[in-house]
Amino acid sequence: MRQAHIDAFSGASGDMLLGAVVDAGARLAAIEDMLGGLALEGWGLTAEPVQRAQLAATRVRVSAADDGSVVRTWANVRQLLIEAALPEPVRARALGAFLRLAEAEARVHRMAVERVHFHEVGALDAIVDVVGVCAGLHLLGIERVSCSTVAMGTGMTRGQHGLLPVPAPAVLELLRGAPTMATDTPAELCTPTGAALLAEFTDVWGPQPPMVVGRVGYGAGERDLQRPNVLRMVLGESIAGSPTALLLTTTVDDLPGELVPPVLDALRSAGAGDAWAQSVIMKKGRPGVEIACIADPSRSAALREVLFRQTTTLGVRGQLVDKWILERSWLEVDVAGQPVRLKIGRLDGEVVNVAPEFDDCAAVAAATGLPLKEIYARARASWPGEDDTG
């Protein structure tokens, strides 16, 4: 499994995360291409090597014609993302991050979510940061994210609402349940945008899990501080074995069929590795549907909440199960002039499965007008064989 571990020893911000994914190998041009699906003008991205306390890192800057005077509501941002031409996983993650921001601001100001007005986090550069990070992690093929304890600064910071304590109230709301630590650095180390992205993507909080390290990326913050103002992202493959997974199931006989797919989508967005449904016969011979998902045990509470809130169930069953997975890697091939990723599965070093990434194939089909099944077949046929996959 392709995974990323985020080391937030100097906090996190949108630009630090974006710099880290670029430094770890996501092509800036590919991220810009995805961002082009947003109905926004007047922005640009540049990346440059910098030093922060003797650590080399990549600093990604967003240039934006928007000076921050445009105030967007959660509804504005949501509609912008819904209408954008983005890969579905990128759209879902960006919507998730901004919804978390809206809910955090609503709690801080004690108002309804729909009344929340984004200020700094709704500015053009913040939108580009958030969607850019979602695009970068998608391009890197990341399937699982872990994150260390998040460092926090101290003092005060100035926003549209005036002076605010550091950490900002929204940051603490966003990181409820996550490990954080105070430092004596008089600066805002973790921003609301950074906290929202960490909360959205992180599957497990804590030390780096067992993994074979591949690439390491360093994303630089704007300022030079006494501590290295960078965020480190370690990419690699999880170590093969039989990790424990959580299987959650529930059965219902009164949920309309058209509501089942949104429930499955919500489970995946909440951290399920997969979710599915199947027809069952319940008590008194009633036809019903069983909804199930499998995930890391740390996602239990979030997934149970989805099932309770979005279905008609009164109870959820859970059990720990062994999960065996193939060693996985990715290879990018060219199909009709467009990039498509192949997921390669190995058993004891031998390639036993090669599968084109569906979202990539769908995007190429939409761009070229060719049938999806043809794109899929071409991508599979483009696999060069064992000698060229590493």
Results as ranks from 00 to 15, higher is better:
D334G: 01
V150T: 02
V133K: 08
W205I: 14
A106Y: 11
L303Q: 03
E188R: 02
H109R: 05
L80R: 11
Y218P: 01
C134W: 08
I294E: 07
L255I: 10
L372V: 13
S279F: 06
R52Y: 07
R215A: 15
R93P: 00
E105P: 03
T183F: 00
I6A: 09
W330G: 01
L55Y: 09
G273P: 00
G25R: 12
A295I: 14
V116A: 01
D254R: 12
Q310F: 04
D7A: 09
G236R: 06
M152D: 02
L174R: 02
S10H: 01
P262R: 14
D360S: 01
E143L: 01
A24T: 12
D33P: 00
L189V: 09
I325V: 15
T183R: 09
Q319R: 15
F118P: 06
E41S: 14
P256E: 15
A363H: 08
V150E: 02
P262D: 07
V21Y: 03
A4M: 12
K283R: 15
L372I: 14
L139Y: 14
L175I: 13
V60D: 01
A355W: 02
G153A: 13
A151D: 04
A104C: 08
P287F: 10
V71G: 05
L342G: 14
D359F: 01
V306W: 07
A220Y: 07
G11E: 13
R93L: 02
L235N: 12
G155Y: 14
R317M: 10
G318K: 00
A302C: 08
L95P: 08
P356M: 06
C361P: 09
G271F: 10
L248E: 08
I281K: 03
V22K: 05
T389D: 13
L320T: 09
N76K: 09
E32L: 02
